[in-house]
Design a protein around this nucleic acid. Structure first.
Length: 202
DNA sequence: AGCCCGATGTCCT
DNA sequence: GGACATCGGGCTA
């Protein structure tokens, strides 16, 4: 039986959590059905000093407010006017840190995923590409801003479960994607992924 | 009120 | 490798 992650699992710094979340299962409960995948790629956003983070300089707005909440809170934002990205908040209350979930290995609810990802498309999606990107997994699991601010420790439709344990050897570490504007933070090694996994983004 | 641009994905050449 | 969709957030004024 898989157990849901609790506050103590989330209660740490973003780099530690980003590594810890690799191998855990992201579960979305839709109309009585489990749609889920194993997390295979994450990025840490370090908060106030991190020029790539929305919370840089302790910027507090309607959008970023969930980042200031307790560890285990969901932070979902929209980008490019059409895509959503899902994050897990961590660290102390008031220290706005988060981990971006960038890719999953699909595990349950393939039909829902294909349906959500397949709409208006020429060629069908490759199985490994159902959740091979931060916006793709939000499409596949039907995650949007309705979920920003929810508590993943007790939400009935969205949570994380303990899953596979990858060894340190299985993981790779490198710079984050799409943050070239972040100057000295652009190259910081804060992205973790499962080495050689076909579902890792780009 | 107006402007710029993004923690991306898809399709085209 | 490049164009482009599409719109809310955050900043300037």
């Amino acid at each position: 039986m898989s157990e849901r992650l609790t506050f103590s699992d989330y209660d740490t710094d973003p780099s530690t959590l980003a590594q810890r979340l690799i191998g855990t299962r992201l579960v979305r409960f839709i109309d009585g059905e489990r749609v889920s995948g194993t997390i295979i790629e994450t990025e840490a956003y370090l908060g106030v000093e991190d020029k790539a983070a929305h919370s840089v300089g302790a910027r507090f707005t309607d959008r970023t407010a969930p980042m200031f909440e307790r560890a285990g809170t969901a932070y979902v934002f929209m980008t490019y006017g059409m895509h959503h990205c899902f994050n897990v908040v961590c660290a102390e209350v008031g220290d706005p840190c988060a981990v971006l979930i960038r890719a999953l290995e699909p595990k349950e609810g393939f039909a829902v995923m294909r349906d959500r990802r397949g709409a208006k498309r020429k060629t069908p999606v490759r199985h490994a590409d159902l959740c091979s990107g931060p916006a793709k997994l939000c499409q596949a699991l039907v995650i949007d801003r309705a979920f920003t601010g929810v508590n993943l420790c007790e939400h009935p439709e969205l949570w994380l479960e303990h899953g596979e344990r990858f060894s340190h050897q299985d993981l790779a570490l490198g710079p984050r994607i799409g943050v070239d504007y972040a100057q000295e933070w652009a190259d910081a090694p804060l992205r973790w992924w499962v080495k050689g996994h076909p579902g890792v983004s780009r």
